[in-house]
Design a protein around this nucleic acid. Structure first.
Length: 175
DNA sequence: GGCATGATGGCCT
DNA sequence: GGCCATCATGCCA
């Protein structure tokens, strides 16, 4: 599953970013997925080719970034929930107005703010500038568990985190 | 055309 | 721990 493969990958936006430590999968037949009720204006990107970025606004305030992983017309994506800051940390701290590294990218909205990702990045490919996505060199130790932050079908164990990472969005996400 | 809701985060008590 | 900001989307009338 792509959600697990993304754990440990290096994700950079314009030179700022780090290692993916938390993801959550959303399938097309998933009641919690934006693609569940079919293709609409907002989620059109989810139905596009894999390897692109799907960005949407949450609660009118925050941005959330997904990696499209289904093929054309499928409507599947993986939400990037947290990164471990590695590169461009000063830039991310400035954008977040926050010094604490552990909180820089520990959540979907925070991650987008730190990397400067907004709705204008919706639909852009991740394999060329300003973005860079590099798979993990060695399979990291991951844990899966129930998803969080949603009101439907949250019991599907499609949330993945890097074991013992201090940079995930919840203190004790999983055992 | 109008209303309810959300894959969140920050600041309050 | 609880409440609130703030708006695009989606569904209903």
């Amino acid at each position: 599953m792509v959600a697990r493969d993304l754990i440990g990958a290096m994700f950079l936006a314009d030179g700022a970013g780090g290692v993916v430590v938390e993801t959550e999968a959303y399938a097309s037949d998933d009641p919690a997925s934006h693609s569940y009720r079919g293709r609409t204006g907002r989620n059109a990107t989810m139905f596009g080719p894999a390897g692109h970025l799907y960005v949407y606004r949450s609660y009118g305030i925050h941005w959330c970034a997904n990696v499209v992983c289904g093929d054309d017309g499928v409507g599947a994506a993986v939400l990037l929930r947290a990164l471990e800051p590695i590169q461009g940390i000063a830039e991310m701290q400035a954008r977040r107005g926050l010094a604490d590294i552990a909180l820089l990218c520990s959540g979907p909205g925070r991650l987008c703010q730190a990397l400067g990702i907004t709705g204008e990045h919706d639909g852009v490919p991740l394999d060329r500038p300003p973005f860079e996505l590099r798979a993990a060199e060695a399979p990291p130790e991951t844990i899966s568990g129930p998803r969080v932050g949603i009101s439907r079908a949250s019991e599907r164990p499609w949330r993945y985190v890097l074991r013992n990472s201090l940079f995930v969005s919840r203190p004790r996400p999983l055992a």
